[in-house]
Design a protein around this nucleic acid. Structure first.
Lengths: 335, 335
DNA sequence: TTGTAAGCGTTATCAG
DNA sequence: CTGATAACGCTTACAA
């Protein structure tokens, strides 16, 4: 069972190990030798030893994938996309979770470096990037997904958060809403900044003035989503529609709405983020902006492979993907 | 940045590489040398090269995790448990998906073997086990989770499916139901067999005769769950309660129930399987049997590490974990 | 305890 | 195109 070595193959084929190695690595070998080698390989059930190969060639055919949380639907879908591409190329992936903490993120980056991965796909957990900047010095190809940093020039795959949220909020406005609450992420986080940007753009276009009381900041968690909608709904002049800007805060909104016995699309209109069984199942189905998760993964994988093979292009190449908008009766028509 | 070798450390510390190696691997070294080595390591920023270490010692400090589907909540929670334990021990995990196909499962097992993982945690995708039996010959430690096979003697971590479903169905009966439909998995699948067993036990105990018309077999997918409940609800003497035996079929039931505009706990009582945002969020919250996913993971990881370190005990050691039952108003009280 | 030296299974260099 | 041989960085007898 794959216990033979290149040496034995060479012996059986009557050539030197160098020739066998060359054959394996796709260099040209005399037709006759080629045949002999192939026979020997089959007969001996030879398999190249990745460890030895890696030791010598400094390539391990493995990619590290570092995400904030493995339990998150968005994340797992992205991972699926990554694996599709990578497995096809016979690369293996080492998946790590930073558990939403930048210091663990930093540790795991180091762990992956020690594991000698050929490249890393990173979904940053926060807007702290000094460890990432530091890590760049290792010259290990690194591709960011979902979030990018102004000061860090790496390849990246992100969604067009501005346009996505602009379009979503525009649809809300089109249905007659003017008092639209937004449950935003942290001020410093890339996605949050952009989603807020889209919100502002949509308002501006329709000459609705931005009311800061309708803007709630959260850490993107369910519990803060709950708190945020609660605050919004406790206002004297409460919003008629709410835009929750990620999966977890959307969940928080739903919980609040159920707790209070409100009717979605009736008592309150809701636009959420990301796709899930839950959002589709509820009556009425929730309007959402959703991201092409699978595609994010495949693009990131292609990007890291590209960089691994051809070296860094030197400058940052950011791929921007479109989001999709699903509008349902969860947004009431006021006019 | 970790580019120095044991050789340089030895030189700087004024000892031989053998001594440094011994120090690294925790063998006794003269106190004075120890100090010198430690200094050198720190100064040179030395890190052992896993590849070289693995090549020589035949240990890679990595564990393969092969699951049917990375997008599944149950699976990701188990994986989280696994990682917790493994990372702590400085092991890395290579996570693979068999995409619910036994032949891919077989391929991935081989892939992991080639990657020289020290052990594999496998959540089998089907009841086909011939490739697994074949794989045992490689003498790579293998721990099964979720499902086991009668003919394969491996360590395993599973839930007590019989008792879990027995208790759940008993609670349904206690509430006055006698016409209880079950949406079962494939006849040959371990979990399905056992969950059905528990169902039968509960009926028998209360002298309710088993009516085969109330028993529907599925492949555990949402679509078949939908079909199954539809068939059940189309019966002349339809069940008053339904037990869906996994997450996906429970989802299928919910979709049907919503499509038909039925009221859970009123028009039909429902007991589902596994935990999810959805089941908790719906009104009324769905009654479920849920499995200690995190624990399954940690136990499996401990088991594989144990076997990796101490070698196979020779005989199969199956750890059986308890499930938890959550009963809500989704099950109507008929008496 | 320690140093020496022979591997582990490849790849890379360099004559030929 | 091929063979011989020196690495890669570490572990592990073996002898001291």
């Amino acid at each position: 069972m794959g216990k033979s070595t290149i040496k034995e193959v060479a012996k059986m084929a009557g050539v030197s190990i160098g020739t066998v190695s060359r054959y394996i690595n796709g260099f040209s070998v005399k037709e006759k030798n080629k045949k002999h080698i192939e026979e020997a390989i089959k007969k001996l059930n030879f398999e190249t030893n990745y460890l030895a190969q890696g030791l010598r060639s400094k390539k391990t055919n493995s990619i590290g994938v570092l995400v904030p949380d493995i339990g998150d639907i968005f994340v797992t879908q992205v991972i699926e996309g990554i694996e599709t591409v990578l497995n096809e190329q016979n690369f293996s992936t080492i998946i790590c979770s930073s558990q939403n903490q930048w210091n663990i993120e930093s540790e795991k980056l180091d762990f992956l470096r020690k594991k000698k991965v050929d490249g890393i796909i990173l979904m940053p957990t926060s807007s702290i990037y000094k460890h990432i900047k530091e890590f760049e010095k290792n010259n290990i190809p690194l591709v960011l997904i979902d979030r990018i940093f102004d000061r860090v020039s790496l390849n990246a795959v992100v969604c067009d958060n501005v346009t996505g949220s602009y379009e979503g909020v525009s649809e809300i406005i089109k249905r007659g809403h003017t008092k639209i609450g937004i449950i935003n992420g942290p001020k410093t986080v890339y996605t949050a900044k952009n989603r807020f940007e889209g919100y502002k753009m949509a308002l501006k276009e329709e000459s609705i003035k931005l009311d800061n009381d309708y803007v709630k900041y959260t850490d993107y968690t369910e519990i803060e989503g709950y708190r945020a909608i609660k605050e919004l709904m406790s206002m004297k002049e409460k919003p008629t529609a709410i835009f929750a800007t990620n999966y977890k805060t959307t969940l928080g909104c739903l919980r609040y709405i159920y707790d209070e016995g409100l009717k979605i699309g009736e008592d309150i209109s809701l636009l959420g983020y990301d796709q899930s069984d839950l959002f589709k199942m509820i009556k009425p189905q929730i309007s959402v902006i959703y991201q092409p998760t699978q595609l994010i993964g495949t693009e990131a994988a292609k990007s890291i492979l590209e960089e691994t093979n051809n070296g860094s292009s030197g400058k940052s190449n950011v791929k921007i993907l479109d989001t999709k908008l699903v509008i349902t009766e969860s947004i009431k028509k006021l006019k």
